[in-house]
Simulated scan of single mutants.
Amino acid sequence: MCGRYANHIGAMLGWTDVLADWPAQAELSFNIAPSQMAPIVTSQGCAVFRWGLLPAWVDTQQTAFSTFNARLATLAEKPSFRDAWTRGRRCIVPALGYYEWQQQSNTKQAYFVTRKDCNPILFGGLFECPRLDTPGSFTIITRPAEGLLEPLHHAMPLMFEASQAKLWMHGNVDESENLAWQPYSEDYRFYPVSNRVNNVHNQGTDLIREILPEVPPQQGFGF
């Protein structure tokens, strides 16, 4: 699951093979939430789209259902995502890392997931193009958690290496699906961070700074 993430434009600018036209108007944020505008990469280049996919039949940004995440296993079935998936509207969502929460005692503890080598994470997503009354929009795909991330939550975002990004965007449906289900490497880690991230208006590097947790993470917990 991915309901909040951080991007880091400074780190992205060096990835010219994938992000050659990184949008200058894309602002740095340590606390991106659904419905906010954020940069993505499509086969046509970089753009700033709304997080929360707006299907073709939607003519307003005020939707009654949640589309900021899409389960990999049901992309071909769910009406909200089926058209984007089958027609190849796949994208990459660059990030520094994402936040996850666990219920511990009487509170939810925030954790930050990032790469061990501090390189950008590339989420796999789907997008819809801008229309007359709606902006371009995207969703981040999720799949069952595995490896080092499994104790944190039962689901995790679809994530790629830089070498896989172009195949994800340009491959056919079968190639992209096979790529999406490949086992993950152990390149990711997570650690507790301040619950200041709970307030979407809070920003700054202190949101991703490691703190000492009151209670260690527990296997199988999620929400």
Rank of each mutant, 00 (worst) to 15 (best):
Leu96Ser: 15
Arg131Ser: 02
Asp83Leu: 07
Ala26Gln: 06
Met37Pro: 10
Ser29Cys: 09
Val48Gln: 08
Thr42Ile: 05
Ala84Tyr: 07
Leu72Gln: 01
Glu128Phe: 06
Glu27Gly: 05
Glu100Asn: 09
Phe81Ile: 02
Cys46Gly: 12
Ser43Trp: 00
Gln102Met: 05
Lys116Gly: 02
Ala47Met: 10
Ser29Phe: 10
Gly10Leu: 06
Gly136His: 07
Ala11Pro: 08
Arg82Thr: 04
Gly124Asp: 03
Trp85Leu: 07
Gly97Asn: 12
Ala84Ile: 09
Val41Ala: 09
Asp17Phe: 04
Phe65Pro: 07
Ala76Thr: 05
Thr63Glu: 11
Ala70Lys: 04
Ala20Val: 00
Trp57Phe: 13
Arg71Thr: 07
Thr107Trp: 12
Cys118Asn: 15
Ser66Ala: 12
Gln25Thr: 13
Arg87Asn: 11
Tyr99His: 05
Gly97Lys: 11
Thr74Cys: 05
Asp117Leu: 12
Pro94Tyr: 07
Ser80Tyr: 02
Ser80Leu: 04
Leu28Cys: 12
Gly45Arg: 00
Ser105Tyr: 04
Ser66Gln: 13
Gly52Tyr: 02
Phe65Val: 09
Val18Asn: 09
Ala95Asn: 13
Ala76Lys: 06
Arg131Asp: 04
Thr60His: 12
Cys129Ala: 15
Phe123Tyr: 14
Leu75Ser: 03
Phe49Trp: 04
Gln44Met: 10
Thr86Trp: 00
Pro94Arg: 10
Tyr99Lys: 05
Leu122Gln: 09
Ala110Ser: 15
Pro120Ala: 06
Leu122Pro: 10
Pro55Asp: 01
Val58Cys: 12
Thr74Ala: 05
Gln25Asn: 14
Ala110Asn: 13
Glu77Leu: 12
Lys116Leu: 14
Asn119Arg: 10
Val48Tyr: 06
Arg90Ser: 04
Leu28Asn: 15
Ser35Asn: 07
Asp21Met: 08
Ala73Pro: 03
Gln25Met: 13
Thr63His: 05
Arg71Pro: 09
Gly97Phe: 09
Arg50Met: 01
Trp57Val: 09
Trp101Ser: 09
Pro23Glu: 01
Thr74Tyr: 02
Asp59Met: 06
Val18Trp: 08
Trp85Gly: 03
Leu72Met: 05
Asp17Ser: 15
Asn106Ile: 05
Pro79Ala: 08
Val93His: 04
Leu132Asp: 14
Leu13Ser: 07
Cys118Met: 13
Ala73Asp: 15
Leu13Trp: 02
Ser35Met: 09
Pro94Ser: 13
Cys118Trp: 11
Ala64Ile: 05
Leu54Trp: 02
Leu126Ala: 01
Asp59Trp: 04
Asp59Asn: 14
Cys46Met: 03
Phe49Gly: 03
Ala20His: 06
Ala26Pro: 05
Ala110Glu: 14
Cys46Lys: 00
Thr74Arg: 04
Leu132Gln: 15
Cys46Pro: 00
Gly136Arg: 06
Glu100Gln: 14
Phe123Gln: 13
Phe30Cys: 13
Ile92Cys: 03
Leu53Tyr: 08
Leu75Trp: 03
Pro135Thr: 02
Phe123Cys: 14
Phe123Ser: 14
Val48Ile: 14
Asp133Tyr: 12
Cys118Pro: 03
Thr16Phe: 02
